[in-house]
């Protein structure tokens, strides 16, 4: 009797055991099925397609600053700049700049004398140059408001080239040499501060002499 009653009490346990056994088998069967999904994804391995990757070796920018035109004061300078990066270190650059010569000391002192017409006072130059990123590095800027520190890639570069300067009714072969500091705000935007010396021979004041013109400018450029 005791055994019978025991069996009655044990029945639910047995049932539960059997049930869980079948459930386990079912689960195993289900997991075996999962190896092969109902819908097979239609994805074929793809090769890397280079043409889909954006290349950013060109840089287009504008600059503004001050240029001192020998004998003709210092003036505001504006211009555009295009660069092509050949390697991580070397780049080619083309510049177009525009300024306006001021008055010589002689014109100021003598009063009503004008050495050049307004048109001849226009100072225009172009040049093509070869640049070298001599000191690549990083600059750290602490945000003035948030207190976060940002790291920017920078380049200190040397640049030299030649072109022509159109000033005082004369167009002269011009050599240029200088250095600049580039801060990359992100991958495609950069800030420049540059210092360049432009040399050319000119005879506006009688005899031929070498004119030295120092450019100090800052600009923004975009990589594309």
């Amino acid at each position: 009797m005791e055994i019978r009653t025991k069996r009655i009490f044990l029945m639910p346990h047995l049932c539960r055991g059997v049930l869980s056994f079948f459930l386990a088998i079912g689960a195993m069967a289900a997991s075996a099925e999962e190896v092969k999904p109902l819908i097979e994804p239609d994805v074929r391995p793809q090769k890397v397609d280079e043409s889909l990757i954006d290349t950013e070796n060109f840089e287009l920018g504008v600059f503004g600053g001050v240029i001192n035109i020998e004998d003709f004061e210092s003036s505001m300078l504006y211009g555009v700049r295009v660069a092509y990066h050949l390697t991580e270190s070397f780049f080619l650059e083309a510049n177009l700049g525009l300024a306006e010569g001021g008055e010589t000391s002689f014109e100021k002192l003598a009063g009503n004398v004008e050495l050049l017409s307004d048109e001849d006072r226009e100072y225009r130059f172009y040049n093509v140059a070869f640049g070298y990123n001599i000191l690549p590095g990083e600059a750290f800027l602490k945000g003035p408001f948030s207190g976060d520190t940002y790291a920017f890639n920078t380049n200190f570069y040397l640049i030299g080239g030649a072109g022509a300067t159109d000033f005082a009714g004369d167009n002269r072969f011009t050599a240029m040499a200088g250095a600049g500091y580039q801060v990359l705000v992100n991958d495609w935007l950069a800030m420049h501060v540059t210092f360049r010396e432009h040399f050319y021979d000119i005879d506006v004041l009688g005899e031929t002499k070498t004119s030295m013109n120092t450019e100090l400018s800052t600009g923004l450029s975009f990589f594309f």
Partner: peptide
């Protein structure tokens, strides 16, 4: 691969 600059 996101973008390329010279040899990088």
């Amino acid at each position: 691969l996101l973008k390329r600059k010279t040899d990088w």
